[in-house]
């Protein structure tokens, strides 16, 4: 009996070792391996991001003062910037990089692909106060903060959308770039899916007082299942709508819509 027991144990041990040592050469295991590698990289980057964030924060206290919005607006493109602001919208997280809209009482910021772990990204709810350290950049007219790190700080502020309908045709509009804004009584001129069908951005042309403006439902910002995505998809040319969104820029004003309300004809 003992011999049989020992034999079975030895057999199982050998098989178990062989199984553990098997290379990741079947699809399931490979998938797992890929994910695992990613997780490891993420963890490393997370740690780096956290360390950087902490280190940056310490350095900032010693070297760089937090800028007011006025100082930020006056800073040259490519210069280092440090700002305190409140998250107003999250556009995306991927590969330990987060893209968010932030705002304070004086102005707004688009923070593009700042170092951010997935765990920290979850903490960035609307109103969360953050200190951001990065560089000011401009891409097709959109002023943004790039190569940034951040830390969550004390405070909370949720911005009310600013009504910029009357400023649409004016040069003053750019002073509100990246703010949460509202547009009242706009007429739908055209609706086009980027790919001709749902599943990607929706390009919306809205007009006011005879002038047309390009709006966009950015799928990463809203998601395909969101109310705004569905509602915009159901609009028809000639509909009158109130919309809200972030005052993004791409070769001119190109608001990224976050909500839309169809008005009675």
């Amino acid at each position: 009996m003992k011999k049989i027991t020992s034999l079975m144990l030895a057999l199982m041990l050998a098989m178990s070792l062989a199984s553990c040592g098997e290379k990741a050469n079947d699809v399931e295991t490979q998938g797992e391996t890929e994910n695992q590698v990613e997780t490891e990289v993420e963890t490393e980057t997370e740690t780096e991001a956290e360390t950087e964030t902490e280190a940056e924060a310490e350095t900032e206290t010693e070297e760089a003062d937090v800028m007011t919005y006025e100082e930020y607006a006056a800073a040259e493109i490519d210069s280092p910037v440090v700002i305190d602001a409140y998250v107003q919208g999250k556009q995306s997280w991927w590969d330990n990089k987060a893209t968010v809209y932030a705002q304070d009482e004086d102005g707004a910021y688009f923070i593009y692909e700042m170092a951010c772990s997935e765990e920290d990204y979850e903490k960035l709810t609307v109103g969360t106060a953050i200190k951001v350290t990065g560089h000011k950049a401009e891409w097709s007219g959109e002023v943004e903060i790039v190569d940034a790190t951040f830390e969550i700080i004390e405070g909370n502020y949720v911005a009310e959308p600013v009504d910029v309908t009357s400023l649409l045709a004016s040069k003053e509009l750019i002073n509100h770039q990246n703010k949460l804004a509202s547009f009242k009584g706009m007429t739908v001129d055209a609706i086009n899916y980027k790919n001709e069908e749902p599943g990607d951005d929706i390009y919306l042309t809205l007009s006011k007082d005879g002038e047309s403006y390009d709006f966009c439902v950015e799928i990463y910002l809203t998601g395909e299942d969101s109310e705004v995505y569905k509602t915009v998809g159901e609009l028809a040319v000639g509909d009158i709508v109130d919309v809200e969104g972030f005052l993004y820029w791409y070769e001119g004003v190109n608001p990224h819509i976050t909500s839309v309300v169809k008005l009675e004809a």
Binding site: S16, S19, C20, K23, E32, T33, N35
Partner: peptide, 17 residues
């Protein structure tokens, strides 16, 4: 090559052994 974590079944086997 990073092979990642051991599969659940392998881990269970080792614990049982």
């Amino acid at each position: 090559v990073k092979l990642g974590k051991l599969p659940e079944a392998s881990r269970a086997l080792i614990i049982c052994l």
